[in-house]
Design a protein around this nucleic acid. Structure first.
Lengths: 199, 199
DNA sequence: GGGTGCATGTAATGGGTTACATGATTCT
DNA sequence: AGAATCATGTAACCCATTACATGCACCC
């Protein structure tokens, strides 16, 4: 009846950001849409309630900041209690998420009948993934050359390398898979339409 | 007020399994815990309600099967309407999930202070991932050699290749990352504790 | 005066897991 | 007799996104 509590990760993602600098809810959203967005994202619907809860537990401090010429906003900063909670959380090994790959599901259950359509969107996805890979490579290169200012370049590098390895692997797989689909789609789109498929 | 309806994927995963053969809810769970489990998983809490909903929409047919000597069970089979719904679903390109990598979050926010602990669980995760990679490689090899019977070996191969490419990439990244953490953890655990870390 | 960006927030809804309840049958 | 497995199902949560409401301030 009482399900086991697994610690949610949203509040810790927020604490982590606040550890680097005090921020508003809006700032946090921006951050998870750009930099951190490489490996973590949050929506307003998560952030604002979580900030309240953190403040209620004394892990962050809330203060409103009025600025001349700009609208006032609420800035949160981490407390020492919050810092400690964050530290403890990072020590616990991460739990792995159950696999959920919609792409594979659609290919697998689509069968050969859908090969033409699949070839079409696989081509698009391949291009998107290739672009992403190139972006990450450029980013990493800039970091290597010291053209990017970052509070912890080493750890940032580690996350970029993760992105890059994964993107490379996906592109490799995409190209190979696309080869198969293009072949199947072609063999029925043009040559022998009433042949049926054997293989 | 009325959020846009994104089609849920659970019912289609179920339809896909039923397309191959009629199955009970229990069977479906077993399937998503073994074979399909490589890239998709479902829990009872999802499956049974989804089966009811599918039956109500006429996409699957429900019939109870009484077997001599074994307890009766409820077997679902796909209808032609269900087959059509599945086909249409596979034609639509998959949506990509927002990135959520708890591992990177913990490393990134943990900083160097937690390097010793991180090195420890990174080592464990590296081993687990390596084992998984080896398992997938063996599986693929068996498929190549025709030692595995599968209704659609080509599509199954494509999913295994995906698994393999990803596992390879993760192992590569793990080893590299572990190298860094082992170094940091070591340099402070033994030699020059007050030196700080350069390299 | 109107668009855009800054800023805070909530209601509605859906996705998903875990833990339990319940019971039959088979194996030891 | 008791454990393991087959089998169906639900209650209680939690996680998360989307879409909207609201309003300030700046720039054109």
């Amino acid at each position: 009846m009482q399900p086991v509590r697994r610690p949610p990760t949203t509040p810790f993602a927020i604490l982590g950001l606040l550890k680097a600098a005090p921020r508003s809810g809006y700032d946090i959203r921006q951050e998870t849409a750009s930099g951190l967005g490489h490996f973590w994202s949050e929506s307003y619907g998560q952030i604002y309630p979580a900030l309240r809860a953190l403040a209620a537990k004394g892990l962050v401090r809330r203060r409103s900041e009025r600025r001349t010429g700009r609208r006032a906003r609420i800035v949160y900063s981490i407390t020492s209690k919050g810092r400690e909670a964050l530290r403890r959380w990072t020590l616990v090994p991460p739990r792995s998420a159950p696999p959920r790959n919609e792409l594979l599901l659609k290919l697998y259950f689509g069968g050969q009948e859908s090969a033409t359509a699949h070839a079409a969107w696989l081509r698009r996805l391949t291009n998107e993934e290739t672009d992403r890979l190139n972006r990450v490579r450029r980013l990493r290169q800039q970091l290597v050359l010291g053209q990017i200012d970052h509070p912890n370049p080493r750890l940032w590098m580690i996350t970029l390398e993760h992105e890059e390895r994964m993107a490379e692997a996906r592109v490799t797989w995409f190209r190979k898979t696309l080869g198969y689909y293009a072949m199947v789609a072609n063999s029925r789109g043009t040559a022998t339409p009433s042949e049926g498929e054997e293989t």
